[in-house]
Design a protein around this nucleic acid. Structure first.
Length: 487
RNA sequence: GAGCCAUUAGCUCAGUCGGUAGAGCACCUGACUUUUAAUCAGGGUGUCGCAGGUUCGAUUCCUGCAUGGCUCACCA
């Protein structure tokens, strides 16, 4: 950050820093291992009352009363009150309290007691300076609201806004719960390349970077799918990866250029198994982190208890759009239906793409309760296995909660000849100018030729899952440092 | 990428139908040995986002730019 002009508040803090140094006190002190966290002292009051404890943390409030001073000390687990007395500390040490500022880190020790009003307090017998804060914190009860500053200076947001802190602690616990759940189900966590020569596994524009020694462009991955499936071929039957994905697309309350997914693949399973796994995974994460199966998101309550509803895409399109794709047999008929509905089409749109367009336009937002929408058209599913009963469709589903897609899964396509054809179709679209069409991945087709067991695969956007489980309306509320333009 | 809105003290916000600005908290000075949004007395600490234009004079009006938010488009 630029060295901006010191305003009055920062000058005052620097002066206090100098005064500390003049008295031989280092304003940026050394390590200190406290005996307790604030919350432990409060919880274990029965045992700790009148006993000496030591604490370390940040001063969040100072109330001086002449020869006595109260302060609030905030640490990792909570906030506790401190009590300083002239007659206990002695004049020299007590007077140094005037050099305290809100935001400073100090360590204290002394016995625990309860004030007249019943507040658990540490009566300070000695303290140490740990760190002088040279910039003032936002004020105590309005906090930091400026959205831009909250994202740019997330550390300040975390100091001041406890809800923000809670959200990110929950995010960590949700991912931990997910990892535990998958490990318990015998999945193996793996890591696959972030930098790739072919960005595959999804329909999206990649970021491009450059390797100096190899003298070549590399793509940042847009999915983990194709590498994970290679591992099934290699005999790692149940694998998953939790990792960062990068897509060079728009930014919105639901989209950040880098975001986190979990993808998992299970040999010998199919998409029905993935539905069961998905609802169990969401349910368990909610139970373990929130302690409940019911989540409230933006005023709506959702019960995540399995089983979730299951509907086909054709059924929901019939229900919400009033168009029956079961009775539309070809591309021309689908285009006609779209024309009647006033949907904008490109000339080359096919039956399945138009079905999907109807679904996205008329249905997605209606899907509030947890629901699996299944049997996606092959035209929009280049990596999913075709249905035996209708080769225009695939064994693919997406899960929706509150109108938001939260999971995408299918029975994996393991026929290398079919896969090559799908890639070639994508390639044709790419050459026609569709920058999001899938790239040809010859090596993946070769891998399939060695034989990939039938398998089910599942992808979950973790950021969106965390949004729902923490009632956060914007993806930026669940990403610590969301992408911003430099100021 | 398009439209709309916002940007004033460290923070949260008022305000000026055009005459260079104000409140609370924070901060500074003083009083106060169980307060907790401590209280009491005194003190305003500012490039009014940036750059132009109109004007005797712009923080205010106009234009452009920057950053952010929302909506739309794209996507997860």
């Amino acid at each position: 950050m630029e060295q901006d002009q010191l305003n009055e508040l920062m000058k005052a803090r620097r002066q206090k820093m100098v005064q500390l140094q003049e008295k031989g006190i280092e304003p940026f002190g050394d390590n200190y291992i406290p005996s307790h966290y604030s919350a432990e002292v409060i919880e274990q009051l029965d045992i700790l009352i009148d006993k000496k404890v030591s604490l370390a943390g940040r001063l969040t409030a100072i109330r001086t009363h002449g020869k006595a001073t109260f302060a609030d000390l905030k640490d990792y687990k909570g906030t506790i009150q401190l009590y300083f007395r002239l007659d206990r500390l002695g004049e020299e040490e007590y007077n140094l309290i005037s050099l305290f500022d809100i935001g400073d880190f100090i360590a204290v020790e002394g016995p625990v007691f309860k004030t007249r009003k019943g507040e658990v307090t540490v009566s300070v017998e000695g303290y140490r300076y740990l760190t002088k804060a040279l910039r003032p914190l936002p004020e105590k009860w309005h906090g930091l609201k400026d959205v831009e500053l909250r994202y740019r200076q997330r550390y300040v947001d975390l100091i001041v806004n406890d809800q923000v802190r809670e959200t990110f602690i929950k995010r960590s616990k949700i991912i931990q719960a997910m990892r535990n759940f998958l490990n318990e189900h015998d999945f193996l966590e793996v890591e696959t390349p972030v930098m790739q020569t072919i960005a595959g596994g999804a329909l999206a524009r990649p970021f491009i970077t450059y390797h100096n020694t190899l003298e070549m462009n590399l793509y940042l991955r847009i999915a983990t799918e194709l590498h994970l499936k290679r591992l099934l071929i290699g005999g790692l039957d149940k694998v998953y990866e939790i990792g960062r994905i990068f897509r060079n697309e728009g930014i919105s309350p639901y989209h950040n250029p880098e975001f986190t997914t979990v993808e998992l693949y299970q040999s010998y399973a199919d998409y029905e198994d993935m539905m069961t796994l998905t609802e169990d995974l969401f349910h368990q994460c909610a139970r373990r982190v929130l302690g409940t199966s019911e989540v409230v998101f933006q005023g709506e309550t959702f019960d995540l208890t399995p089983p979730w509803a299951r509907e086909t895409m054709i059924d929901v399109v019939r229900k919400y759009a009033g168009v029956d794709f079961a009775k539309i047999s070809d591309d021309a008929g689908a285009r006609e239906a779209a024309r009647r509905a006033g949907l904008e089409l490109k000339d080359e749109n096919r039956w399945g793409e138009i079905l999907n367009l109807f679904f996205e336009t008329y249905c997605e937002e209606q899907l509030r309760r947890p629901v699996f929408i299944k049997d996606y058209p092959v035209d929009v599913s280049p990596l999913a296995k075709k249905m035996d009963s209708d080769p225009r469709l695939t064994y693919r589903f997406e899960a929706f909660i509150a109108g938001q897609e939260v999971a995408n899964a299918f029975t994996e396509l393991n026929d290398p000849l079919d896969q090559r054809e799908r890639f070639e179709r994508q390639l044709a679209r790419r050459e026609a100018g569709d920058k999001e069409a899938h790239m040809m991945d010859d090596d993946f087709v070769i891998a399939l030729e060695y034989g990939m067991p039938p398998a089910g695969g599942l992808g979950i956007g973790i950021d969106r899952m965390v949004m729902i489980l923490t009632d956060s309306p914007s993806i930026r509320d669940v990403i610590l440092f969301p992408t911003l333009k430099p100021r």
